[in-house]
Simulated assay, not measured.
Amino acid sequence: MHLPAGTYTVTTSGYGFASRTDTVTIAVGRTETLDLALTAVAHHTVSGTVLDVTGKPLKGATVKFTDAPVDAVTTGADGTYAFPSVAEGSFHLAASPSAPVLCNGNWTGALTVDGNETVQASLPPRTDAAGTYSCAPGAYSWIDGRTKVALSGDENAEAVALPFPVKYYGVSYTSAYITTNGLVNFLSPRLGDYANTALPAAAQPNGVVAACWDDLTLDKKSSVQTTTTGTTGNRRFAIVWNNAALVSDTSVRLTFEAVFDEATGAITLQYKGIGSSALQKGSSATIGIENQAGTDALQYSFNESVLKDASAIRFSPKAA
Rank of each mutant, 00 (worst) to 15 (best):
Leu3Asn: 14
Pro4Gly: 10
Ala5Cys: 10
Tyr8Ala: 13
Thr9Gln: 11
Val10Phe: 00
Ser13Phe: 08
Tyr15Leu: 14
Gly16Ile: 09
Gly16Tyr: 04
Ala18Tyr: 09
Ser19Phe: 06
Thr25Arg: 08
Ala27Lys: 13
Ala27Arg: 12
Val28Leu: 10
Val28Gln: 12
Val28Trp: 04
Asp35Ser: 15
Ala37Gln: 13
Ala40Asn: 10
Ala40Asp: 10
Val41Asp: 04
His44Asp: 14
Val46Gly: 09
Val46Ser: 12
Val53Met: 02
Lys56Gln: 14
Lys59Met: 00
Val63Tyr: 02
Phe65Glu: 06
Phe65Met: 07
Asp71Pro: 04
Asp71His: 00
Ala77Arg: 00
Thr80Ala: 14
Tyr81Ile: 06
Ala82Gln: 13
Val86Asn: 02
Glu88Tyr: 08
Gly89Asn: 07
Ser90Phe: 09
His92Val: 10
Ala95Pro: 10
Ser96Gln: 12
Ser96Thr: 11
Ser98Phe: 02
Leu102Lys: 09
Asn106Asp: 15
Asn106Gly: 07
Asn106Ser: 14
Thr108Arg: 05
Thr108Ser: 12
Ala110Arg: 05
Leu111Ile: 14
Val113Lys: 03
Asp114Asn: 15
Asn116Ile: 10
Thr118Ser: 15
Val119Glu: 13
Leu123Cys: 04
Pro125Asp: 04
Pro125Leu: 02
Ala129Arg: 15
Ala129Leu: 13
Gly131Trp: 01
Gly131Leu: 04
Gly131Arg: 03
Thr132Asp: 08
Gly138Asn: 05
Gly138Lys: 04
Ile143Ser: 13
Ile143His: 08
Ala150His: 00
Ala150Asn: 14
Ser152Val: 01
Asp154Gln: 05
Asp154Cys: 00
Ala157Cys: 12
Ala157Leu: 09
Ala161Asp: 12
Pro163Asn: 06
Ser172Asn: 11
Ser172Lys: 13
Ser175Glu: 12
Ala176Phe: 01
Tyr177Val: 10
Tyr177Lys: 03
Ile178Ala: 06
Ile178Gln: 03
Leu183Asp: 01
Leu183Thr: 02
Val184Trp: 01
Val184Leu: 10
Asn185Cys: 04
Pro189Asp: 14
Leu191Thr: 03
Tyr194Arg: 09
Ala195Gly: 10
Asn196Trp: 04
Ala201Arg: 14
Ala203Lys: 10
Cys212Gly: 06
Leu216Glu: 01
Thr217His: 02
Leu218Gln: 01
Lys220Met: 08
Ser223Thr: 04
Val224Ile: 13
Gln225Arg: 08
Thr229Glu: 05
Thr231Gln: 09
Gly233Ser: 12
Asn234Met: 12
Arg235Gln: 13
Phe237Thr: 03
Phe237Cys: 05
Ile239Leu: 14
Ile239Gly: 03
Val240Arg: 11
Val240Tyr: 03
Asn242Gln: 09
Val247His: 00
Asp249Ala: 12
Asp249Gly: 10
Phe260Asp: 01
Gly265Lys: 08
Gly265Met: 11
Ile267Arg: 00
Tyr271Glu: 01
Tyr271Pro: 01
Ile274Arg: 08
Gly275Val: 04
Ser276Ile: 03
Ser277Met: 11
Ala278Arg: 14
Leu279Pro: 05
Gln280Glu: 15
Ser283His: 01
Ser284Thr: 11
Gly288Ser: 07
Ile289Tyr: 05
Ile289Pro: 03
Glu290Trp: 02
Glu290Gln: 13
Glu290His: 02
Thr295Met: 07
Leu298Asn: 01
Phe302Lys: 09
Val306Pro: 00
Leu307Ile: 15
Ala310Lys: 15
Ser311Thr: 01
Ile313Gly: 03
Arg314Thr: 08
Ser316Glu: 07
Pro317Arg: 03
Ala319Lys: 11
